[in-house]
């Protein structure tokens, strides 16, 4: 029971930190600070995932969310600009929209199963079969691995397709630029020779 209370306290304080970091992201005008704050945000959420027993997710979030995402953000920033042009001020319209949607969502949580409950529908349907199958049929100790690679392998195939499409998209968006520049340079130098 003692450890239960500690768990709850850690969970609540980490979740509160996440909220504070998110507010910091809203309020910072400097995009460099925003990128760093979003890295911190990802790292804190990785810690939350550990307290919620999702160790694989925490590992991925720390590597991808806090690592690669921050690097991408900094790279984009060097190619664009480092701070927002307009001062941070409160926009009344969006504020009302978000408060309205947020109130509706919080009203919706009232009927949800309490946090930590094993009677929740998510635990009843197919998950016991996955756990038993992982032990008896697949014999991989990590249940997440056996579901990811075996029971839901097509999800992972779809994920790969999405990453491939995104990679092609990035190549087309940024690769075209160099060709244009090269074309410009060659046409410029051609003009120079004519002159």
């Amino acid at each position: 029971m003692e450890s239960g209370i500690v768990n709850i306290l850690v969970d609540i304080s980490l979740m509160t930190l996440l909220g504070i970091t998110a507010i910091g992201i809203v309020r910072s005008r400097n995009l460099f600070a925003t990128a760093m704050l979003s890295g911190i945000y990802s790292l804190i959420s990785a810690a939350v995932f550990v307290t919620l027993d999702a160790v694989d997710v925490a590992f991925t979030e720390a590597a991808v969310g806090a690592g690669i995402s921050t690097v991408l953000m900094l790279g984009a920033m060097t190619l664009t600009r480092r701070s927002e042009k307009h001062a941070i001020k409160l926009h009344i319209g969006p504020l009302f929209v978000t408060i309205g949607i947020g109130a509706a969502l919080i009203y919706g949580t009232v009927d949800m199963p309490p946090f930590g409950s094993t009677d929740a529908p998510g635990f009843q349907h197919i998950v016991p079969e996955y756990i038993a199958g992982s032990r008896d049929d697949i014999q991989v100790p990590n249940i997440v691995t056996s579901i990811l690679a075996s029971y839901r392998g097509f999800d992972t195939l779809g994920e790969t397709a999405v990453i491939f499409a995104a990679g092609i998209g990035v190549l087309f968006l940024l690769g075209r630029r160099r060709e244009d520049e090269e074309a410009d340079e060659s046409s410029n130098s051609g003009k120079g020779e004519d002159a």
Binding site: A54, G122, V127, Y130, I131, I143
Partner: peptide, 9 residues
């Protein structure tokens, strides 16, 4: 474990 798998993806 099922939400963990979905969120990994």
């Amino acid at each position: 474990p099922l939400p963990h798998v979905l969120i990994l993806t």
